[in-house]
């Protein structure tokens, strides 16, 4: 079994507040992964709002958030375990977020240290 981080990105800050129904669908998806004993870490949701998001540059200049120049912003992540990256991708595809508001999910294998 390998571990994969699923990194969620949204297009618009207004998409960040899901309705209770959308939230419930997302929970069902997450619990479905846990039911298959494939959830390693339920991760976190990352607040994108001004005052909750800062971006520090190499020259120590600081901007609010990071979302003015790039189109998508990271909204959260989870870590799952799967046999291979294809299986992890299949799980990501089933996320209800695509039909709810769009956005994207980046699937990244976690480096295992001995």
């Amino acid at each position: 079994m390998k571990e994969f981080a699923l990194i969620f990105r949204l297009k618009d800050i207004s998409d960040f507040r899901p309705t209770p129904e959308q939230m419930q669908e997302r929970m069902n998806w997450l619990a479905g992964i846990a039911s298959q004993n494939m959830l390693v870490d339920k991760g976190n949701t990352l607040l994108p709002f001004a005052g909750s998001a800062k971006h520090v540059q190499a020259d120590h200049s600081i901007t609010d958030g990071a979302y003015t120049e790039i189109k998508e912003f990271i909204s959260g992540y989870i870590v799952i375990k799967a046999d291979n990256i294809d299986q992890a991708v299949e799980i990501a595809k089933a996320n209800p977020i695509f039909k709810q508001v769009g956005g994207s999910i980046e699937v990244r294998e976690v480096l295992q240290r001995d």
């Binding site: 419930q24 929970m27 069902n28 997450l30 619990a31 846990a34 039911s35 298959q36 004993n37 959830l39 339920k42």
Partner: peptide
Amino acid sequence: ILKLYNQLILIEYSPVTA
């Protein structure tokens, strides 16, 4: 009930709960 099971399976996996 489903909501509660969702939370339960996130706390602790077991085949019975699943």
